[in-house]
C-alpha cells in the first residue's frame, strides 16, 4: 500500500461526500430548515422517521462484526465497540420527540419510510457478507453526517422554532460522538488494512448509502 493509493481513497470519498452534500440541500425539509420556514411538525416528522431506522443501527453493525473473521480482528473490534455505542441512540430521539409534545406510543407504533426500508435492507444484506469491509463507506456517510451536519441542523431548529437544548439532544450529541467515530474511521482507512479491492467496495457502499440516506429524508412519512 502506498500513500498515493490512500490519498486516492480519501479523494474518492470526498467526491462522494460533495455529491451527497449537494443532494441534502435539495431535500425539502432541509431546504425549509435553511430558509427558516421549517415548522415544529417538520422537526417532529424528521425525528419520527429517523427513529424507525436508527433502531436498526446497532443491529446491522453487530451483524457486520460477527462476519469479520480473525484476519480482520481490528475491524471486528471496531464494529463491536461501535455497535455498543450506538445501541441506545434511539432512546435519545425518543426523549427529544416526547420533549416537543409527541408520545412514545405513536413513535413506537411507527414504521420505516420507503427510504429507510431501502437503507436498512441494504445495510443488513451487506453486513451478511463475509468480511463486509465496504461498510466503512456506509460509516463514512452516516457518521460524517452526524459529525458535520447534525449539530448545525439542531442549532437552526432551535433558532427557528425556539427549542431548548434538551429538545435537540440527539442531533447535538452526534456532533461529538460521530466526530470521535469519524476519527476512528480515518485511522482505519489509513491503517494499511485497506487494499485496492476493499477501497472500491468502500467507495461503492458510500455511494449507495449516500443515495439511500437522502431518499430516507425525502420520503418522510411515506
Amino acid at each position: 500500500m502506498t500513500t498515493t493509493e490512500q490519498a486516492t481513497l480519501a479523494d474518492r470519498l470526498a467526491a462522494v461526500w460533495a455529491d451527497f452534500d449537494a443532494r441534502l440541500e435539495q431535500v425539502p425539509v432541509l431546504h425549509r430548515l435553511a430558509q427558516g420556514t421549517v415548522t415544529l411538525d417538520d422537526y417532529k416528522r424528521l425525528l419520527f422517521n429517523l427513529r424507525q431506522q436508527v433502531v436498526d443501527g446497532s443491529p446491522w453493525i453487530s451483524r457486520a462484526a460477527s462476519n469479520f473473521d480473525i484476519a480482520h480482528f481490528e475491524l471486528r473490534t471496531a464494529a463491536i465497540s461501535h455497535a455498543q455505542e450506538e445501541h441506545r441512540d434511539y432512546l435519545m430521539i425518543e426523549r427529544d420527540y416526547v420533549a416537543v409534545g409527541g408520545t412514545l406510543e405513536e413513535l413506537r407504533a411507527g414504521r420505516k419510510n420507503i427510504g429507510s426500508e431501502a437503507l436498512s435492507g441494504y445495510m443488513f444484506t451487506y453486513a451478511d457478507r463475509p468480511n463486509p469491509v465496504g461498510l466503512l463507506g456506509a460509516m463514512f456517510i452516516i457518521e460524517g453526517l452526524g459529525a458535520q451536519r447534525a449539530a448545525g441542523w439542531a442549532r437552526r431548529f432551535q433558532e427557528v422554532l425556539g427549542l431548548a437544548d434538551s429538545q435537540v439532544r440527539f442531533m447535538i450529541y452526534h456532533q461529538e460522538a460521530d466526530a470521535e467515530h469519524t476519527g476512528n474511521l480515518e485511522a482505519i482507512l489509513s491503517s494499511g488494512l485497506i487494499d485496492e479491492e476493499a477501497a472500491d467496495e468502500i467507495v461503492r457502499c458510500a455511494e449507495v448509502v449516500a443515495r439511500l440516506y437522502v431518499l430516507q429524508l425525502e420520503e418522510l412519512d411515506r
Binding site: R155, E159, L163
Partner: peptide, 10 residues
Amino acid sequence: VITMSSQATA
C-alpha cells in the same frame, strides 16, 4: 450570525 439559544420560551 447564529444566536445560541439554549432555552425555549413559555
